[in-house]
Design a protein around this nucleic acid. Structure first.
Length: 595
RNA sequence: GGGGACAUAGCUCAAUUGGUUAGAGCGCCGCCCUGUCACGGCGGAGGUUGCGGGUUCGAGCCCCGUUGUCCCCGCCA
């Protein structure tokens, strides 16, 4: 028998028992006589003591043991004397007196320290190059275990609600209207390509046509776009779809799912139902379609107040149908000029002409380049609407609503963080509902905001071909702490509505047939009304684990250039492999590397 | 595609205005030490300052380029 116990389970009740433990030498403390080895495995840490009087042979081996050696020990569990109990360890009341030690494997000196406090500062590329070492840390192991437990909880919850997990293909067809696809050349059909799925969207809808009724999948998805702290090129969704439902059914299922996962993470009872707000409200009040509701500092509409104002910048914008809005950055009156400069550059990038502000000094005086243009009534109105107190900083934006919202939404997050207004141990979920069905792309053409199978709200159907931008979708996002966790919609299930939507989007008939013909055909055989949603599993785990990067909850993540530092992927392949799949690279080989 | 930050010992960092032999803590190696748990003490080894070029009497430091990592904008139906 290799081991009788793990390194995390021995307690006082085991005193007197003969045990075998296996694990890694976490630290070796050699006192010349006594030697202490903290033996570590996934489950914890147990102190093992070697006394030359017990076994000189074992003591010799213990003395030559180094950090990260893999060892197996045999010994007897002893209670520690009262004054030597280590209260920092769950196993701190006992130790194992060992007379048998076997080195199962030696280890080179680790490339970086493995204790969580020091490892947190180590450069991430080194951690990724030696990811298997990084994952030995309790923190990282804990993240992987939590991820597993959360997904397990999700599976149990959905199974109890009669959802069936179905695996859908990884080699599938390109869907050019979404993100950039990862392509896989076909060997058998020269010149053709599979694509890796951006989401199992069409398959899960086809499963509804099949009558599966309730589908889910812990699904790997692939999108060839640039990375962020919360975006990886391959990521995992908890993807689900249901038949014969209304949006209320989705809210109910997901509310319960998230509550179950919060509980599993040890984060207590989530108050249900999760609050909802419309997309229009989210944009107007928070300047974002994924509002962070952990703090206030909402956007305040001042358009009424400044109607007919003498201040030409605001007046001019209002005459052209724009809006004037502001946020009160509580307590930031003394923010350095440098910050205002940075923020000004940021809002200009967002399309604003400039950033107007008022510093409300401690003596109550308003220090501002624009206040001299305000009437007494306007000042009084500001005071009242923005609840201005000494020490506040007021930030104004005046332009078209879309520009004002984006600019102030970003300022709200930046200034809120700077003011320390964002509580860190809070979980503020919200649904964002009633998204527009369409948006205009850079070329001014209509495109689906979600995807082209999203159903319009029934009451908006008459507007579909006349005023498409006013049509709201039966689409909803679930948001946590300003992060888009997931989204979904009720789908179009009747071919007529689908056809008229394609028409509005301006898809030519031959293209519709080529790209969506299979789906339309399927829907012509009796598709049930259906809808669903997908949750970004990595993001959810990241937030519930209290991590700042999605990479910390993925076992083997990629760098910002989508490199796998451990495997060194992507990499060149043999010319033979390329020939087989009928691919020729147009990238010039550097001199000296030609074969 | 764009903006920003960083790159010095195995790790984390320091190095005055451009000026002697590039330092510290941790780790590593050796010796000592019988109750430590971040053990302690003494000693030691360890550097092409990411790479390439330039300016200069002289470059870790200034300039240009390049590579890599991270953050953000664009992008992400």
């Amino acid at each position: 028998m290799m081991r009788t116990h793990t390194c995390g389970e021995l307690r006082k009740s085991a005193v007197g028992t003969r045990v075998c433990l296996c694990g890694w030498a976490d630290t070796v403390r050699d006192h010349g006589g006594l030697i202490f080895i903290d033996l570590r495995d996934r489950y914890g840490l147990t102190q093992v003591i070697f006394d030359p009087a017990d076994s000189r042979e074992a003591w010799d081996v213990a003395q030559s043991t180094r950090g990260e050696y893999v060892i197996r020990i045999e010994g007897v569990v002893e209670a520690r004397p009262d004054n030597m109990v280590n209260t920092k360890l769950p196993t701190g009341e006992i130790e194992v007196r060992s007379s048998v030690i076997e080195v199962l494997n030696k280890s080179k000196t680790p490339p970086f320290p493995l204790d969580d406090e020091q490892a947190a500062k180590v450069s991430e590329d080194l951690r990724l190059t030696y990811r298997y070492m990084d994952l030995r840390r309790q923190r990282m192991l804990g993240n992987l275990v939590l991820r597993h437990k959360l997904l397990q909880a999700a599976r149990n919850y959905l199974d109890a609600l009669h959802f069936t997990e179905v695996e859908t293909p990884i080699l599938t067809k390109s869907t050019p209207e979404g993100a950039r696809d990862y392509l896989v050349p076909s060997r058998v059909m020269p010149g053709t390509f599979y694509a890796l799925p951006q989401a199992p969207q069409q398959y899960k809808q086809l499963l509804m046509v099949s009558g599966l009724d309730r589908y889910f999948q812990v699904a790997r998805c692939f999108r060839d776009e640039d990375l962020r702290a919360d975006r990886q090129p391959e990521f995992t969704q908890i993807d689900l779809e249901m038949s014969f439902i209304t949006p209320e059914d989705i809210y109910g299922v997901i509310d319960g799912l998230l509550a179950a996962m919060m509980k599993t993470a040890g984060l207590g009872e989530l108050a249900l139902p999760i609050p909802r707000m419309t997309y229009a409200d989210a944009m107007s009040r928070f300047g974002s379609d994924k509002p962070d509701l952990r703090f206030g500092m909402e956007l305040t509409d001042l358009s009424e107040l400044f109607k007919g104002t003498q201040f030409k910048v605001f007046g001019g914008v209002l005459e052209k149908g724009g809006v004037v809005k502001a946020i009160n950055a509580k307590g930031l009156a003394a923010v350095p000029p440098r910050a205002i400069d940075d923020w000004t550059a940021m809002v200009k990038e967002a399309g604003l002409g400039g950033l107007a502000y008022i510093r409300v000094q401690d003596d109550g005086a308003w220090k501002s380049p624009i206040v001299k243009f305000f009437s007494d009534a306007e000042k009084a109105g500001l005071q009242e609407k923005l609840q201005i107190q000494n020490g506040d900083l007021i930030l104004f934006a005046a332009d078209k609503p879309a520009v004002v919202h984006v600019a102030l939404g970003r300022l709200r997050l930046l200034s809120g963080a700077m003011a320390g207004a964002i509580p860190q141990n809070k979980f503020a979920f919200t649904w964002v509902t009633d998204f527009p069905l369409f948006e205009k792309n850079d070329e001014g053409q209509l495109q689906s905001m979600h995807h082209p199978f999203t159903a319009p709200r029934p009451q908006d159907l008459p507007l579909l071909e006349t005023e498409p931008l006013k049509v709201c979708a039966q689409a909803y996002d679930i948001v946590l702490n300003g992060v888009e966790l997931g989204g979904g919609s009720i789908r179009i299930h009747d071919p007529d509505t689908q056809a008229s939507l394609f028409k509005v989007l301006g898809f030519p008939p031959n293209e519709i047939e080529e790209r969506f013909g299979h789906l339309i055909r399927a829907f012509s055989f009796g598709a049930p009304p259906h809808g669903g949603l997908a949750i970004g599993a990595d993001r959810l785990v990241m937030l519930l684990a209290g991590c700042e990067s999605i990479r910390d909850v993925i076992a083997f993540p990629k760098t910002q250039k989508a490199m796998d530092m451990l495997m060194n992927a992507p990499a060149k392949v043999d010319a033979r492999q390329l020939r087989d799949i009928h691919i020729q690279s147009v990238v010039a080989e550097p001199e000296g590397e030609k074969k």
